[in-house]
Amino acid sequence: MVITVASGKGGTGKTTVAASMADVLNDCVYMDGDVEEPNGHILLNPEIKLTEKVFKTLPSIDFGKCDFCGKCIEVCEFNALINLKSEIILFEEMCHSCGACIYFCPQKAISEVPKEIGVLRYGTAKDNITFFDGILRIGEPSAVPLLKRLKSKIENGKITIIDSPPGTSCSMVEAVKDSDYCVLVTESTPFGLNDLKLAVDVLKIIGIPFGIIINKYQPEFRQLEEYITANGFDLLLKIPFEREIAEAYSKGILPVTYKPELRNHFKKLMTEISGKIKPEKVNAG
C-alpha cells in the first residue's frame, strides 16, 4: 500500500505530515521524494546504512567513427548537441537521455555512458521505519529519473509513505503516480486554497483517490472548508496554527512526539486511510 503526501504549495507542512504518519505507524517505509530539497531526514533522524549512486545515460561520440553528417544533431529535440565543425559537443544538463541520437547515427559512432545525477540513501529511523531519501545533484534539470529509482525500492506488504516534491510539476506527478492514496496538505490562507485546487486538478487527471489535511488551521479563513465541503472532498484532519508547533519544527522535532492528542489523531487517520484504500483497490480490479 502506497500513500503519497503532496501539496500544491511548498511550506504547508507536507514533510511534517508525512514524517508524523511514518512515526505513528512505526512499522513502515518512508521515502523522501522531495529530492530537490530533501528534509525528511531532519525530522526522522535516520541512521543511514547504504548510499547508492543513481545515473542517467548520456551519449558519447567516437570521433574516430564520426563523419559529421549531423544526423544526431537533427534528431535531438532538446538541442543538447552542438556542431563545432571539428567536434560535436554535448550539453549534459540539456540531454533527456532519450537515446535517439544513438539509434539514428548511421556510423554507429555513439555509445551510452553513465552520468551520476544524485544518490539514494537507505537506513532506519525511530525503531522500525525503513527510511529512503534521494538527493538530486545541484543543477540537474529533472528529478524524474531519481524518483523512478527511489520508487523501484517499494516493496509489497508494508505501508509506504512517499513525501512528494511540492507543486504540480512533472516530478510531483511522478511521485504520486501509481499511489493507492494521496494526502494533500494545505493551509488556511488564500495561497493554500489556490494551490490545493491545482493539486486536486492533477490528482483528478491521473485518477488517484485523495483526502485533505489542513495544517496551520485558522477558523477565520472559511473559504477553504467551504471549498472542501462544496466539492464533497474528504477533510481528514485539521492541525491548529500554533507557535509551539512552528518552534518545535524549527528544531527538527515532530509535533506527534510530544503532543499525545495529535498522535491519537494521526493514529486514527492512518486507520481511516487504510479503510479507504481497500475498497478502492477492489473496484480498480
Binding site: 532538446f78 538541442n79 552542438i82 556542431n83 563545432l84 550539453f91 540539456m94
Partner: peptide
Amino acid sequence: QMQNGAGPKAAELIIK
C-alpha cells in the same frame, strides 16, 4: 522559436 537551447544553436550558426 525554439523551446530550449536557442543560445547554443545560434552560436553553432555563427561558427558555421
